[in-house]
Design a protein around this nucleic acid. Structure first.
Length: 287
DNA sequence: TCTAATT
């Protein structure tokens, strides 16, 4: 384009090669950008009228009004969440994250206010509060910028998937554990404990406490894999430091294998630490 | 340090 020096330009593409109908042009001189905007915005190109505008800088931290909400009741709808927050200001967008398989709410959502002050007031008014009829308080804080995919998180993900593959063959050795010599009593009294709800993601969720800050997923695979089918492991980390917060979760398919793992690993000494291992309890279902 | 989650 003839309005000055272009640094970079990019079109939005999807696989295969089909334009998404937008693109970005980066000028080194803001005046050149303005000139391009003024000249090209509204221009008719064949059947289309093109729109050209400056890219609004993401997170000019002043005025950042996007909130992250966790601990929401699983039953709360997006509309109900908006109603709860609307008393603090004008809501631009909202979202509740749902489990991709079951479609059930993950109890986590986002609220973007029009103004920073509204978001701040909502945090003051709602963080740590129980919504009407809710059993547990919610957490309300400023959301992290979604675009910051840390290389660390990416590496962890890659390592996790390779650990998962590695854990595969081990499973064959675990058949001897399948019929455990330990008497497992009936499942009375286990309602709301361990077994995750929803048919698709079913499994026994195990809570592992006293992991070291450096613990990662591979250690959980190695600890629990020998006891049977492990479908998922998660080390809970601080989002900013990426250090383990001292606990994690392991999901196992079969009750007897999970019980065996718990019986064997609870009190297990890992380095300097003694692990506490139990079925994950659900406060919501506690009597 | 005893239950996360980041569109």
């Amino acid at each position: 384009m003839g309005w000055g020096e272009v640094e970079t330009s990019r079109l939005g593409f999807k696989i295969p090669r089909q334009s998404l109908g937008y693109g970005f042009v980066n000028y080194s001189d803001p005046n050149d950008a303005d000139k391009a905007i003024n000249t090209l915005n509204g221009l008719k190109l064949q059947t289309k009228t093109i729109k050209v505008s400056a890219l609004v800088p993401v997170t000019p931290h002043l005025g950042y009004a996007n909130l992250y909400v966790s601990g929401l009741p699983k039953t709360m709808s997006q509309k109900e969440m908006e109603q709860l927050f609307s008393q603090y200001g004008r809501i631009i967008t909202s979202r509740i994250l749902v489990d991709q398989v079951t479609g059930v709410s993950r109890g986590v959502g986002f609220i973007r206010f029009d103004k920073r002050i509204e978001a701040e007031e909502a945090i003051k008014g709602l963080n740590g509060q129980k919504p009407l009829g809710a059993a547990e308080p919610i957490t309300v804080k400023f959301a992290n910028n979604p675009s910051q995919k840390t290389g660390q998180a990416l590496l962890t993900h890659l390592y996790q998937s390779s650990a998962r593959r590695y854990a595969g063959p081990l499973h064959h050795q675990t058949q001897r554990f399948r019929f455990s010599p330990i008497a497992i009593d009936g499942m009375s009294g286990l309602a709301g404990v361990g077994l995750s709800g929803g048919a698709a993601g079913a499994g026994w969720c195990i809570f592992v406490y006293n992991l070291s800050p450096e613990a990662d997923e591979s250690v959980l695979w190695q600890l629990f894999g020998p006891f049977g089918a492990v479908t998922n492991v998660k080390v809970i980390r601080d989002f900013t430091t990426n250090k383990c917060k001292g606990f994690g979760f392991v999901t196992m398919t079969n009750y007897d294998e999970a019980a065996m793992a718990i019986a064997s690993l609870n009190g297990y000494r890992l380095g300097e630490r003694v692990l506490q291992v139990s079925f994950k309890t659900s406060k919501q279902h506690k009597a």
